[in-house]
Design a binder for these strands. Structure first.
Lengths: 252, 252
DNA sequence: CGATCCTTTGAGAACCTTCAAAACCGGTGG
DNA sequence: CCACCGGTTTTGAAGGTTCTCAAAGGATCG
């Protein structure tokens, strides 16, 4: 593992105030691995032996039932994921799969659980991390239950614009197929939702999106600080599944 | 506060391995209050000063957007709620309201945050608590995104049957109006969903439900351990919003 | 007993899904 | 360079589900 990568892991909120000793103990048996796109890192229902840290690439967390799939979060660097299962030493409730070629660091769950019982600053950081992740999911659930498809998309676009710097036009961070699953609809429906937003000053050009009249779009979207998290979480490095979990910025 | 109540709080997973000293510090400034039904304890967006512990009664957690409401969890004793917001000293993402007359213990958020930084066993317990709550929400989100209305209801009924002892007939724990909101549908639609389940051996008699042919109902419901949590969480006392958060048994 | 709220039922509209097919895009191999 | 292939994206039409509006019947509470 390169020094740069160590720095990035160290900079995660989860390891922020932690002693050098604890950090060493946790990263000692760690290994960095490169995966091609489309690799399933972890399958729903499997026991979880490692905490994953995405250092480069793009990872999707998904859930399955009755031959249907849905995306619960899309993560980008630097993010940790499935920390909750690791903390409880429980089976995974969601699968993790790479969307692009990814560099992933794997930390021993055993070592992490030991560290949590040893280092109070670490378990405190873990609490804050999971609290943030919990709130991210509350946002997701509200988004899902309270808004219709077009409204979810509109808010997603507004959030993306802000996160990418606020320019009038920006690029979708991944395939629309995946976005549809994240927003809880079919690809066909997402396409139609985009068509609907055309009437609200949104111009689509492949993966390029332009919000020509933000005020008009916001009148439809009605963004809400209690659902949408426009700011990336603490500092530059992101915590857990928060990032694009979507409306949430923390998913842990 | 009665001794019985202290015992019950003490028995929560959150305070399980905690030192007598920490427990004392946290409960020192606590006060027990009785609220009538329909009281809003906490409003979405408000700062959160206390951790709430439901000792008796029934509490609903709800989210709002654009004049619409949805129920995110229904809690019964003994449960704590809005722990995540307390841990982060953040504004509430959901409102809390009593459904029935309730006895509620309020613990100082400030004291809890101090305790988490002092007592490693407490912050470890807090981590486990929040991890469980997080997983409860993952279950809820999967339930919501992957299943249709009738399927959600069918699984809810199966879960209730198990939790209430497994008898052929049992009683809905609250109004159908509230159940509809919890399951993410309108009351009208819930009524129709019940009518649909009639064809699968479910007999409705006001609040009384009997599952005459469990096998038939399960063929429709397809219950899944990665979504539905039939067992109440750890031990008798329940942690956070877990309990009926619904499919989850722990809600963070 | 009246008022209020919950529950159920009906009808129409809006939304979403499915199935199907065509256009598009990015690669590979000739 | 070009044809081909697999995948995504778009569009259309039909069908199902869910929502809204409306009204009637029940239950509860003062």
């Amino acid at each position: 593992m390169r020094v740069v990568d160590v720095e990035r892991v160290r900079g995660l909120p989860l390891f922020c105030g932690v002693s050098e000793e604890t950090f060493g103990a946790v990263t000692a048996g760690a290994f960095l691995q490169k995966f091609p796109a489309g690799t399933t890192l972890l399958h729903e229902g499997d026991p979880v032996d490692f905490l994953y840290v995405l250092l480069d690439g793009l990872v999707e967390l998904e859930g399955t039932w009755n031959d249907k799939e849905t995306t619960l979060a899309v993560l980008r660097p630097v993010s940790t994921f499935i920390f909750a299962a690791v903390a409880l030493d429980a089976d995974a409730l969601m699968s993790a799969r790479t969307v692009e070629r990814s560099d992933i660091l794997m930390l021993s769950g055993e070592a992490l659980r030991r560290a949590m019982q040893t280092d109070p600053r670490f378990s405190y950081a873990a609490t804050l991390e999971l609290a943030g992740c919990y709130r991210g999911l509350v946002r997701s659930l509200k988004n899902q239950k309270l808004r219709g498809g077009a409204e979810r998309l509109a808010n997603y676009l507004i959030t993306q614009r802000v996160r990418q710097g606020g320019a009038e036009t920006f690029t979708l961070p991944h395939e629309k197929r995946l976005l549809a699953s994240l927003l809880g609809m079919t690809p066909e429906n997402l396409s139609r939702a985009f068509a609907t937003l055309t009437g609200y000053g949104v111009v689509i050009n492949g993966p390029e999106v332009t919000i020509a009249r933000p005020v008009v779009l916001e009148r439809l979207a009605k963004p809400d600080p209690l659902i949408d998290n426009h700011q990336p979480p603490s500092g530059t490095p992101i915590g857990q599944a928060e990032q694009e979990l979507w409306p949430a910025s923390r998913a842990g």
